[in-house]
Nucleic acid binder design. Sequence first.
DNA 1: AATACCTTCAACCGCAACTCT
DNA 2: CAGAGTTGCGGTTGAAGGTAT
Length: 270
Amino acid sequence: MGRKPCCEKVGLKKGPWTAEEDKKLINFMLTNCHCSWRAVPKFAGLLRCGKSCRLRWINYLRPDLKRGLLSESEEKLVIDLHGQLGNRWSKIASHLPGRTDNEIKNHWNTHIKKKLTKMGVDPLTHKPIVTTNECHDQVLPLQQTVDVAEGCWEVEEEEEEEEEEEKTMTSSTEYVTEIDASLQTSPGFCIEEVPLIQPHEIVIPEASTDDTSSSSSSGRSLKTDELRFSAMEWPESTYFFPMDDLGGWGFNSDHTLEHQTATTEHDPWK
DNA sequence: AATACCTTCAACCGCAACTCT
DNA sequence: CAGAGTTGCGGTTGAAGGTAT
C-alpha cells in the first residue's frame, strides 16, 4: 500500500503558472503565511496542489528573491561550497541570500559545470581532469581549486566587460564568513520565514531624487524605487518593480498588486 | 524563411526527513 | 513507539526561446 498523495490530484492544474494564479498566491501568502501548504490552494482559490504552491512561492514569487544571473562572486562561492558540500543545493543556497536551491542547481548545471570542464576541472570531484597517470589520485586542496576558477574568470572578464562589483574578498571562504555574518545581523528577516504584512501596512516611498532611479535606466539602479513596508524593512535584495515598464509583480499607486509583462528594452534581466 | 538542434530554467516527481497524534 | 501526515530536497523533464544550417 502506497502513501496517500500529498493532495487530491484529480482536477488539479499543472504546468506553468498564470499571472492570475500568481496574484492569488501572493495575496494569500502576504496575509496568511501561517497555514500549511496543503491548505494554501484551498484558501487561496487555486486549483494547484500545495506542493506546487510552495515551489512557486519559494522559487519565484517570494519577495526577497534576487533575480538575474548569479554574480561572479556568487559563482565562486557556489563552487567553493559545492566542493565542501557536494550537491546539497539547499545548504549551498542558504549561504546566498535571495537565491534558491533550484536556481543554484540550474545555474550549476547550465553554466558552472561547463566553465569548470572548459578549464579542466572535474565539476563532480573538483579535481583537475587529467589524462596522464602521474596525476592520478591527486586531489587539489580546496583553495587551489578556487584559485584555478578565479584564473578562468579573469580571462572571461576580458571578453565580456563585467559590471564593477566590490570584490575585495581575498578568498571565497572569507566571503562565506562575511555572508554568514551579514545574515546574522540582517534586520529580523529569515529566508525561511515570510513576514506577516497586512495590506494596510504597505506604504510606497517617496520618489528618489537620484537620476539613476528613473524608469529609463536599466538594471539595479531601480533599487531606489524599491518599496518599503511600515512594519519592517525588506532586505536589500527585495525588488517590487514600479508598474510603468518592468515585468513581474509590482504595486500600483493604490497599493494593489499587478502583474506586467516586461518590455525587453527595460527589463534589466534581459 | 523554414527547419533542426541546442540551451535554459520553471516545474514536476519521488523519496527522505521531520512532525504530529 | 509507531504510523500517518507534511515539508523539504535533489534529480529530472519538457516547453520555450535562441542559434545554426
